[in-house]
Amino acid sequence: MQKQKKIPQRKCIACQERDSKKGLIRIVKNKEGQIFLDPAGKANGRGAYICKDCECLKKAIKTKALNKAFKLEVPNEVYENLLEELKAYED
């Protein structure tokens, strides 16, 4: 009998829904302090997960969820860049 492989679960920082790591998209803050989308989920740095949905990202912006996740003040232009990146990724 083969053991079932465990699927890593992550929680969206905006809606608090749990999903598989593949079902969410990772946002990373690297050592240089840059914040960006990491679709591959392999970039070095502190990661936070969000649904692949602009509505969830907008909710995260409103509640400043990334500020809490990364323990720093995230500038508005970073949020705007993330929205643009996610829109391109959604299409």
Rank of each mutant, 00 (worst) to 15 (best):
Gln4Phe: 10
Gly41Asn: 03
Cys12Thr: 09
Glu55His: 10
Ile27Ala: 08
Leu83Phe: 06
Asn44Gly: 14
Ala88Trp: 07
Glu32Cys: 00
Ile50Trp: 15
Ala48Gly: 11
Ala88Gln: 12
Cys15Gln: 04
Leu86Glu: 09
Arg26Lys: 08
Asp19His: 13
Val28Gly: 03
Glu55Ser: 13
Leu72Asn: 04
Leu66Arg: 05
Asn44Gln: 15
Ile13Leu: 01
Gln9Ser: 03
Cys51Glu: 14
Cys54Trp: 12
Ala60Thr: 15
Glu80Thr: 11
Arg18Pro: 03
Lys62Pro: 03
Val74Pro: 15
Lys52Ile: 03
Ala48Asn: 07
Leu37Gly: 13
Arg18Phe: 11
Lys62Asn: 08
Thr63Met: 08
Glu77Leu: 08
Arg18Thr: 10
Tyr49Lys: 00
Ala88Arg: 12
Ala65Lys: 01
Glu17His: 10
Cys56Met: 08
Tyr79Thr: 01
Ala60Leu: 15
Leu82His: 01
Ile25Tyr: 07
Leu86Met: 10
Leu72Gln: 12
Asn67Pro: 07
Gly47Phe: 12
Tyr89Trp: 06
Leu24Tyr: 10
Ala88Glu: 14
Cys56Val: 05
Ser20Lys: 07
Glu32Ile: 00
Pro75Thr: 03
Thr63Trp: 05
Lys68Pro: 08
Lys11Met: 13
Ile50Leu: 15
Tyr49Leu: 01
Pro39Met: 01
Lys87Asp: 06
Gln16Pro: 00
Gln34Gly: 02
Lys31Asp: 14
Pro8Trp: 02
Gly41Trp: 07
Glu77Met: 05
Lys52Glu: 09
Glu85His: 05
Glu77Val: 06
Gln34Thr: 09
Lys62Tyr: 12
Ile25Val: 14
Phe36Tyr: 09
Lys11Cys: 06
Leu24Pro: 11
Gly41Thr: 06
Ile13Thr: 01
Asp38Ser: 09
Lys52Met: 02
Gly45Asp: 05
Lys64Met: 14
Arg18Lys: 14
Asn76Glu: 14
Lys42Gln: 14
Leu37Val: 08
Lys3Met: 13
Met1Ser: 14
Val74Glu: 15
Asp19Cys: 13
Gln4Ser: 10
Gln9Gly: 00
Glu73Asn: 13
Asn30Thr: 09
Glu80Val: 04
Lys64Ala: 15
Ala14Glu: 09
Lys31Arg: 10
Ser20Cys: 01
Asn76Met: 08
Arg10Gln: 03
Lys21Ala: 02
Leu57Ile: 05
Gly41Ile: 02
Lys87Gln: 11
Pro39Thr: 03
Ala60Glu: 15
Thr63His: 10
Ala48Arg: 06
Lys11Ser: 08
Pro8Lys: 00
